[in-house]
Structures are given as C-alpha cells and as structure tokens.
C-alpha cells in the first residue's frame, strides 16, 4: 500500500491570516459562496484562567480537501502549505508527521479520508 500523506499544523503559530483558505479556493476554482477544502476556525481573544488572553486559530479541512493532488503530482507543495504566512503547515507521510507532532506542542496532524 502506498504511504498515506497528510498535513501537520503547528497551530500555536497560526495567525489566522486566511491565506490557506484563499489559496485552496483559488487553486480549485471555487467561487465566493462555494464550499472550500479548508475553513479557518478562529477563537479569540479569549481570557484564560491566568488572566491572559489567548488566540487559537485552527484550519479545519473538509471532505473537499484532495491534498492538492494535481500539485503534488508535479512536485509542488499543496497550495495552503506553500502560501501559509506563518509557515506553520507541513505536508508529508502521516507516519513522519505524527512523529513531528509528538515533538511539537499544540500541533495536530490531519489525515484525509482516502
């Protein structure tokens, strides 16, 4: 079986810039109002128990995410990863990303459906 690929998000650095969303929309030709491969969930500023504010931004991938199959086939990175302004996304084999996640606080790995 071919190795399964996914995305790693080091989300403590996600600034909420929306570049992943727009990159995905543009790449796939989805128009305003149409569903997208990634949606940004924004939480904050939220006051925490220690009296400090926190922002948690999280790109969430939908069933429309095809991991940019056309791009990766020609040796490019998925466009959200390529354009992420905080450079907090990585594309790679899930097994490797899982190891990376283990070593990275406040991160997660997205594993697509197929």
């Amino acid at each position: 079986m071919a190795e399964k690929y996914g995305l790693f998000i080091d989300y403590q650095w996600c600034t909420g810039c929306h570049s992943c969303e727009m990159a995905c929309k543009v790449e796939h030709g989805w128009k305003a109002g149409e569903a997208n491969g990634v949606i940004l969930f924004e939480d904050g500023p939220r006051m925490m128990a220690n009296g400090k504010y926190e922002y948690n931004n999280l790109p969430v991938f939908t069933s429309q995410c095809d991991l940019c199959a056309d791009r990766t086939a020609m040796g490019k990175l998925p466009t959200c990863v390529h354009h992420c302004q905080a450079a907090c996304m990585k594309y790679g084999p899930v097994s490797e990303l899982a190891k990376l996640a283990e070593a990275t606080p406040r991160s997660w790995v997205y594993v697509p459906e197929q």
């Binding site: 810039c17 570049s19 354009h83």
Partner: peptide, 25 residues
C-alpha cells in the same frame, strides 16, 4: 491565469496574503 508566491524569493519566501492570492479575480 494563475499566481503563486515565488518560493525562491528571500523576501516573502513563497508566502502570500489572501489579497495577492485572489488577485486574478
């Protein structure tokens, strides 16, 4: 038809804001 950030540029290193990503529109 399309635009991408230039990953070989030391300036923005491939990154773009949503405005430039959508600039074709």
């Amino acid at each position: 038809e399309k635009i991408e950030g230039d990953p070989l540029s030391p300036y923005n290193q491939g990154r773009l804001c949503m405005r430039c990503l959508d600039v074709v529109e």
